[in-house]
């Protein structure tokens, strides 16, 4: 069997005296859709920031298809094939929806900045290709009607979707989604589940999903890892996680062994 797509080995992140991620082992095989859950402050987003190079591990390692990511700048990790979205949406406020996707298409542009000055055929063809690909993505995700709208005037749900589209425009192999359902209404959550499944299927992606909404996590994930206080306390199928006493305790305290996840 080939190397796993993503492998965290005993990865640890410390902020001063606080250990935010504690000796985390996590392995994703190509094509998996894995959920990462846990109570607030469990270290989920820190784990994302570790994988994407915003933080470096105090000890342990992160490897992407067998290649260690240590010391790579965030934009290099994106170029290697890991894209992400953010818990608190981070868009380029003044850029239009189309320009967001075009900007992310820079990794796959054929013309150099010098071509931009000469404006010869190479440049125009490269620009046309980037724009065409961006329009294609916007059409796939029903954002074409907002093509020229600045991101800051987009409705909230569309902003979330645009972040995912921008991540996809970098043509990743691994997509990290950080609470994509946060702030969405029930109807939008149902649409998001369908969207994640579609992206997973049609783009041949491996997805790691951090989410608080159990409906979303249980609905789409094939496997779930649970973090609490930086440590992985459980891992398994959604069904097994639902029944796991340690998980229920982490969420509700030791006295509540009632079914948390039964809606």
């Amino acid at each position: 069997m080939s190397a796993p797509l993503l492998q965290l080995t005993q990865a640890t992140v410390r902020f001063g005296g606080l250990t935010a991620v504690d000796a985390l082992d996590l392995t994703l095989q190509e094509g998996e859709l894995v959920g990462l859950i846990g109570p607030n402050g469990a270290g989920k987003t820190t784990a994302f920031n570790l994988i994407t190079g915003l933080y470096s591990p105090a000890s342990g390692s992160v490897a992407f298809s067998g290649r260690p990511l240590a010391g790579l700048a965030p934009h290099r990790i994106v170029a290697a094939g890991i894209a992400r979205t953010f818990q608190n949406i981070r868009l380029f406020g003044s850029l239009s929806v189309l320009d967001h996707v075009r900007a992310a298409g820079n990794l796959h542009r054929t013309a150099s900045p010098l071509h931009a000055l000469l404006r010869l055929r190479t440049f125009r063809e490269s620009e046309a290709a980037v724009t065409a690909r961006a329009d294609e993505l916007l059409a796939l995700f029903n954002l074409s009607c907002f093509r020229n709208t600045p991101a800051r005037s987009l409705p909230y749900g569309e902003q979330r979707r645009l972040e995912i589209v921008r991540a996809l425009a970098t043509r990743p192999r691994l997509l990290l989604l950080d609470e994509p359902a946060a702030g969405l209404n029930p109807q939008e959550k149902i649409e998001l589940v369908a969207l994640i499944q579609r992206v997973h299927r049609e783009f041949n992606l491996t997805i790691l999903l951090v989410e608080h909404s159990m409906r979303v996590v249980m609905g789409v994930c094939q496997r779930i890892a649970v973090l609490d206080h930086g440590k992985k306390i459980a891992e398994g199928s959604p069904e097994a996680i639902r029944q796991n006493p340690a998980v229920i305790e982490a969420y509700l305290g030791p006295d509540h062994a009632t079914g948390l996840f039964h809606h």
Partner: peptide, 19 residues
């Protein structure tokens, strides 16, 4: 397309790196 990066960096550096 290259130049969109200037404005992207101005609006949000972390997001620019993520793109």
């Amino acid at each position: 397309t290259y130049g969109l990066g200037f404005r992207a960096v101005r609006d949000d550096e972390i997001a620019a790196a993520a793109a």
